[in-house]
Design a protein around this nucleic acid. Structure first.
Length: 499
RNA sequence: GGCCUCGUGGCGCAGUUGGUUAGCGCGUCGCCCUGUCACGGCGAAGGUCGCGGGUUCGAGUCCCGUCGAGGUCGCCA
């Protein structure tokens, strides 16, 4: 750590007057100079701040002060005003007689101009990523990025001088490999381009919720610690639950079905856990599942209609709420067709056999390469980034899957492919108690193990179905990320448990 | 888990058929530059090449093991 030149002795206590706004441009001398030096050096005045006595009987919480600051993006609307901004020192550019500080806050970047020699000296030692509070005059200037900048500033450090980040955060592109980014996630993700996918992710979730709320769905939260494995049974994380064996939930499937009997229509955004040893660019041990389940459907096609609207709502929300991130990443948002093209599983295999040079007929599932081919086919033939593949063979689907009444070897289920990747699985579920008993018997399952789940159906359930969207996969396909870890803040996978 | 590839200063890379003091860019530090905006210029520090073992007169450079990483396939969201 570096101490600023000429700093040291001139420190003083801080009063409300120091923080009052607006502040007149003040010559940076004497106590003021000392205060800046102190802030830039080892004294952490801000830690005293919450307990500072309020002058004039005005109760001013730290929150009201911090939140009252102007965001970088709003600076052009405050031209001529004395204004406070706060953020990370994104970049410092020192020229002979003028120094530019570029501050980064959650809204964007703002330029601060220092011309006073003493002010320049006072900030000279501030490393990038140091958190600063700047009060200055918003000045319109065509030379300034965004058309406005802060002049005659008073700069105060809110953090200790920051340790240099593992790579340059201010460059247009983040020049770091994925492992480096992941190892230093909390700092690395500050890079605007590394942060942007998560803004898109958040907007997607907002769109998911908004669309389903509009359709009368109730948002639910279900346990992530469960007594028995949900799906295939294997690949679950076992935990010690007060001395009893338990598992991390692989899916909210059983619970969301159960409460269809309560609310008719439910959705949930939550984590799911898969202990599958799949070390790929599209698998995580924990990911976020966007689930929906609802009753009184005719069959899986009703589910597909709702899913189509949900996807469209997510895209619209991204466009509306994450426009800056979309632009920064140069994302091409997909057009969601009113009717997403669909292929039956058997048709898909015929199509592949006839055109792709491979013959997957007879296989119970589609390989990733087949999914990519089919996605390209949908884009080519139908101009769609999306493709429904319906009617997957029952043998490859979980026991609660509803068969196609006309072709019982096939199911009333579907996958939604998005830009070559399996994004959603959904379908109609069994809803009759007797069908569950039969399905379990046919698969050699033990009804006793599913007693509480099955009892729901014994008490009367409507025909129902639902789907689950993999959030990180969705975002990855949207932003063109080649690895799902690029759209996961702190990924958990076969090898990574930290940070 | 199978297969392929990689592991060189904080970051991103180069290191020819194994051979004297391991290079480059960025960053860092110092000096210089009236307005930059991936600013620019000059200089300096910082690595013994993931780890262990082996081959060799000599290994970052070949072999074995090990740990870590990336890709790919199976499978999945």
């Amino acid at each position: 750590m570096k101490t600023l030149p000429s700093c040291g002795e001139k420190q003083r206590s801080h009063t409300q007057a120091d923080r009052s706004m607006p502040r007149r441009p003040a010559p940076v001398t004497g106590p003021e100079r000392g205060r800046r030096c102190m802030a830039a050096a080892k004294v952490r005045w801000h830690r005293e701040y919450p307990s500072r006595p309020h002058s004039q009987g005005i109760a001013q919480s730290i929150w009201s002060v911090m939140i009252s600051r102007t965001l970088a993006a709003d600076l052009p609307r405050h031209v001529g005003e004395r204004t406070r901004i706060a953020g990370w020192l994104h970049r410092r550019r020192e020229l002979k007689s003028v120094t530019f500080l570029v501050l980064r806050d959650r809204s964007g970047l703002a330029q601060v101009v220092l011309t006073e020699p003493s002010a320049i000296a006072a900030t000279a030692g501030l490393p990038e990523e140091t958190v600063l509070d700047v009060v200055g005059t918003v000045t319109a200037n065509p030379q300034a990025p965004g058309g406005a900048e802060l002049t005659e500033p008073t700069v105060t450090a809110l953090s200790d001088p920051a340790k240099p980040p593992p790579f340059d955060l201010y460059r247009p592109a983040a020049r770091a490999t994925l492992p480096t980014v992941l190892d230093h996630a909390s700092v690395a993700l500050r890079h605007p381009k590394l942060r942007a996918p998560f803004e898109i992710s958040a907007a997607s979730v907002a769109g998911f919720r908004a669309t389903l709320d509009e359709l009368g769905f109730t948002e639910i939260q279900t346990p992530k610690i469960v007594e028995s494995a949900t799906e295939s049974g294997a690949n679950v994380f076992g935990i010690d639950y007060f001395g009893r064996p338990a598992y991390l939930a692989q899916s909210p499937q059983f619970f969301k079905q159960a409460v269809v009997g309560v609310f008719e229509r439910v959705h949930e955004v939550g984590p799911v856990f898969r202990a599958e040893p799949h070390d790929t660019t599209r698998h995580l041990a924990q990911y976020t599942s966007l689930d929906a389940e609802f009753g009184y459907i005719t069959d899986h096609r009703d589910v597909m209609v709702v899913l189509r609207d949900v996807i469209a709502g997510m895209v619209a929300s991204v466009a509306a709420r994450a426009a800056a991130a979309v632009e920064l990443l140069d994302v091409t948002l997909p057009v969601v067709p009113q009717a997403i093209p669909q292929l039956h599983f058997a048709e898909a295999q015929e199509l592949l056999a006839a055109n792709s040079g491979e013959d997957p007929r007879g296989e119970p599932d589609l390989a990733p390469a087949h999914e990519r081919w089919l996605s390209e086919w949908a884009a080519r033939e139908h101009g769609s980034d999306f493709l429904f593949v319906t009617g997957y063979p029952m043998v490859k689907r979980p026991f609660y899957t509803h068969p196609d009444p006309a072709r019982p070897a096939y199911s009333n289920s579907f996958d939604l492919l998005f830009r070559g990747l399996e994004l959603v699985t959904g379908g109609q579920r069994l809803h009759r108690y007797s069908d569950y008993l039969a399905a379990l018997a046919a698969r050699g399952g033990n009804p006793a193990a599913y007693e509480s789940y099955l009892s729901t159906f014994a008490h009367g359930m409507p025909p129902h179905g639902g789907f689950a969207i993999g959030l990180e996969r969705w975002t990855a396909r949207l932003v063109g990320a080649s690895n799902i870890r690029e759209t996961t803040l702190f990924p958990r996978d076969l090898n990574r448990l930290s940070p």
